[in-house]
């Protein structure tokens, strides 16, 4: 044995478990406002991820048990499951997860070596390949015209079958960001759009509470020192400033900055996706640049791009820049302050 002989009692698995734990409030809020279908999505994605992780580890001749138990595959599965419509067809969930685990993670060298956020790669593949299924979000229970019971939801996910007389439109809806984009395109005034039932006090009905739960989970991660403040602060501040400026100049076409923070994937991205250490920069200044860039790209794609939300592409585009950011943000060494 060599010095140091002491070690802090922490492990990769412990970190991943804490992140999973921090996602639980958001999942609970999700179930409360949108029904339990998301649990099936999470379960299916988790099972797929673990099975493929085991297969890939075996193929790569790595010890299966310690790596399978490190929790990283499970986290990828959860983040992907929470990013896609909760009642998506089973094959879509499996495809997205498979892409994330097999291609984005293991073909690039597995844990610690993947340059792109696996969950976001999975998401990007799905939104490009299956744009229709990827926009069929469940309407919040409080405003849906009709309900589909849990068994029928499962039936729809696995067999694409709806009960007699049920209409897909009656229980699905476009997301608040999607609705905003479409309605603005139709030249409806902002005030009228915001009074639609899909909008709540700040963000989307129901969705704003899920966002709040992500924020709560994120604060727990900050308190546990699993993540540092740099990434969430820079990401949120950039979106807030960019959307705030546009809102001030042209409130008729730009929603309030608070709305931008409380809708879409802003909060899950700020605390759970951009904070992935493997695919982000390691220096404090680098983290600020990286997250600001992602925030700015998210705002630009939301406002001018073809997709209602821009988080996944913003994250992937900034992932590309990480080696460059790291190289140019090296802090000065002790005694050699510039």
């Amino acid at each position: 044995m060599n010095s140091p002989y002491l070690a802090q009692s922490s492990s990769v698995a412990q970190i991943m478990v804490k992140v999973l734990l921090a996602l639980v409030p958001a999942i609970a809020a999700y179930v409360w406002f949108f029904g339990p279908a998301v649990l099936v999505t999470i379960a299916l994605a988790s099972a797929t991820a673990l099975a493929l992780e085991a297969v890939m580890l075996k193929l790569r001749k790595k010890p299966v048990k310690p790596y399978l138990l490190d929790g990283s595959a499970l986290l990828t599965a959860w983040l992907l499951a929470l990013s896609i419509p909760p009642m998506g067809p089973w094959w879509m969930i499996v495809t997205g997860t498979a892409f994330a685990i097999v291609i984005a993670k293991h073909l690039y060298g597995g844990l610690g070596s993947n340059p792109f956020n696996p969950a976001m790669v999975g998401y990007a593949v799905l939104i490009i390949s299956f744009p229709v299924q990827m926009t069929q979000w469940l309407a919040p229970l409080s405003i849906a015209q009709s309900h589909l019971d849990f068994m029928s939801q499962i039936g729809y996910m696995f067999f694409h079958a709806l009960p007699q007389g049920a209409q897909l439109d009656a229980f699905t809806s476009a997301t608040p960001l999607d609705t905003l984009k479409t309605q603005l395109h139709l030249d409806r005034p902002m005030a009228a759009i915001m009074s639609m039932p899909v909008y709540g006090a700040i963000g989307g009905t129901g969705g704003q509470w899920v966002a709040a739960a992500y924020l709560a989970g994120g604060l727990y991660l900050l308190q546990q020192k699993i993540i540092s403040w740099h990434v969430p602060a820079a990401f949120i501040a950039t979106i807030f400033i960019a959307s705030g400026a546009f809102h001030l100049i042209d409130p008729a076409h730009h929603a309030s900055p608070w709305f931008e923070l409380a809708t879409g994937a802003t909060m899950i991205c700020a605390f759970f996706i951009l904070t992935d250490p493997v695919t982000g920069p390691t220096t404090p200044r680098g983290k600020l640049i990286f997250a600001s860039g992602a925030g700015f790209l998210t705002f630009v794609i939301r406002t001018y791009g073809g997709y209602p939300d821009g988080v996944a592409f913003a994250v992937l585009l900034m992932n590309i820049c990480v080696p460059l950011i790291d190289a140019y943000t090296q802090p000065s060494v002790f005694g050699k302050k510039k």
Partner: peptide, 26 residues
């Protein structure tokens, strides 16, 4: 007193090492 350390896992770039480095290295 000095338990054997577990098998090393890959670096996940968490940068805790950089935060703890008194020489401000990476």
């Amino acid at each position: 007193l000095f338990p054997k350390k577990p098998q090393p896992m890959p670096c996940i770039r968490c940068a805790r090492c950089a935060e703890s480095c008194p020489a401000d290295l990476q």
